[in-house]
Each structure stands twice: as C-alpha cells, then as structure tokens.
Design a protein around this nucleic acid. Sequence first.
DNA 1: GGGTACATGTAATCAGTTACATGATTTA
DNA 2: TAAATCATGTAACTGATTACATGTACCC
Lengths: 167, 167
Amino acid sequence: MRLTPVSYIILGLVRHLGEATPYALKAAAAESVGNLWTVQHAQLYTEPEKLAAAGMLTEEREDAGRRRRTYRITDAGREALDAWLHAPPEGTGETRDPGLLKLFFGADPAQLAPAEVERHERKLAQYEATMAAFGATMPQGPRLALEAGIVHQHTWLAYWRALAGAR
Amino acid sequence: MRLTPVSYIILGLVRHLGEATPYALKAAAAESVGNLWTVQHAQLYTEPEKLAAAGMLTEEREDAGRRRRTYRITDAGREALDAWLHAPPEGTGETRDPGLLKLFFGADPAQLAPAEVERHERKLAQYEATMAAFGATMPQGPRLALEAGIVHQHTWLAYWRALAGAR
DNA sequence: GGGTACATGTAATCAGTTACATGATTTA
DNA sequence: TAAATCATGTAACTGATTACATGTACCC
C-alpha cells in the first residue's frame, strides 16, 4: 500500500492520541494539523480502514450501540511513520491561495483586499490565542508549526493591507 | 460543466496569450502561475477539450504534421472568467508544505532546516531575478503575485534559518 | 417524547496523477 | 542518418470530494 500525506497524518494523530475513533481524529485534526493540511471527513473513515488492512493500525469495533471503530497504531505503523519523518520531504510547498490566484489573473486588488485582511486577522487572532493558552505545554512539533502559521499570517496581513491602502 | 481553479487558469492563460496550444500553455504556466498553483501536464490536454465542449474555448486542429490543437477564448469563456474574477474567493488558502507537516509530527528541526533554507534561497533568488528582469513590464496581476511569492520566501527563510541556528 | 446536535458511515463521482506511447524536429 | 530533445496525446487509476443516509445521545 502506498502511503500518502493523509496516511501519515492519521498515523501521527493516532500515535499521539493513543487510541482514536474517526470522530476523535476529526476533532483532533480540526484545530491542529488541519490548519496546515486539510483532511476530508470521509477520509477519516476510509483511510484508517485501509491502514488497518495494511497492518499499520489495529481496529476494534463496538458490538452494540454506535458500533464505533477504535484504532491504535501497530509497530509496523510506528516504523512507517518514523521512516517518513526521517526521510527528506518530497516535493515543495505550494501556496494555493484562491484570492492570490484571482489577483494573478487581474482581479481588482482594492476589491479583494478588505475581505482578505479580515480573514487573515481572524486567523492570526485564533493562532495567537492558541499560542497564549497552550504554547507552553504543547509538544515542540505542533508549536513550531503554529509559529510558522503565525509568521505567515503576519506576512499575508502586511501584504493585503498594503493593497487595501494603495489605490 | 463545473469549472475548477484549473479551468480558470486555462481560460486566463488563453485569454492572455490570444491563442495557445497545450504546449504553449505548459510553457506559459511553468514560470508564472505555476509557482502558485501547479497544473499537471495531462490536464493541459484534457481540460481545454472540456472547455471547448462547454463553449468556453474554440478548438482548431491542424490537418497534417503534428495535428496540433489551437485554442482561443470565446465570449462565453470571457464572461465566465470575468464572473469568477469578480466573485469573492471561495475557500481559504492552505500551506501544504511537506517539510512543515513533518515538523508538526516531530521531525527533527535541525535535520530538516538546512535543506529547507536552501530550497527557499533558490526560490527567492529566482523570483527576484524575474522581478529585476521583467518587473517593470509585467502586467499588474502577475507582478503582485510575484511580490507575494517574494515576501513569503523571505518569511520562510527567516523561519528555517532560526531553526537551523537554534539547537 | 420531541427536537436538535452530535456522530457514523457509504456510494458515487470526478479531478488530478501516473504511466505509457509515439510523432516531429533539430543537431551533431 | 542517428540520437536527442521537443512536443502531443491517451488510458488507467486512485485520492479526494460530494452527496446521501441514518443512528444515537442529550436536553428541554
């Protein structure tokens, strides 16, 4: 089985949580790694199943009630995750910002900028609140990623504010 | 037909070029909008065909030799593109940086940072060379997008350099 | 006990990717 | 004229998205 970034996200989250249902993964991803790499709701159900079939996770299912599936990481999963973490990153990051794409093709900066400024202000405030509340107790990885988010939001803000001001 | 970002990229490039073969689109995308939103080689053949079927482009084909297809934008295509440009951007940008994803899940910053620094240095140098050479004559949209690329590369550089230095 | 939010899943589709295959032109 | 490169395309696959469908727990 070919592992994708989403596979590693799920392996990483399950390892961190110890055990997790798809819904727990959804919640965990939403306010952490989801800011960096979105994972679709449906994938949180289909991908763990594939990973379990490949021996990277174990799956345990309730007999009654919601018949929830609970996943745990296996040694094989841990090894795959570690191997990925130690390998150099494949490919380069992409911006993929819909607003910037429109700007490229000639959209009016003054029309785009106010909404973008507001979006980035909100995001920045959210990141900084998280940092203030949990920064001291977060594991290093997520904290560094959060810091990256913060500096980028600052960059975006300065960029769009300049476009909102200039006319 | 549902138009995707890639559809609009092709419409935008064809409008700008006046007429274009898939190969011309490939060349045009490579060093401009491709830095912002990558488009797959195969899509440059399949997507214009779909757009032509939808009446957004016209397709003209050589009878002999390479039987190249040449596309031009139609009024319907122009309208669709303008409508998209005037509509507020749907969705928010994502970072999707493989290196940062690894950092999030606990990869060693000191191991990742040097390669990342080098990557971003290269990219920044490339952007700045383009800006120096063509900045004055580029249309506003692409120039603004290029500026965004430059400020982001600066941000990334500072970020990874700090991680390379700290131990 | 009725409504609402939370939670769990599956089916179908499609955009995007990968892999394959070949033709035309240029250059040595 | 052989090799290399430029150029053009298609087929098959699959990761991701969308849409649908329903069940369970909680609160009033």
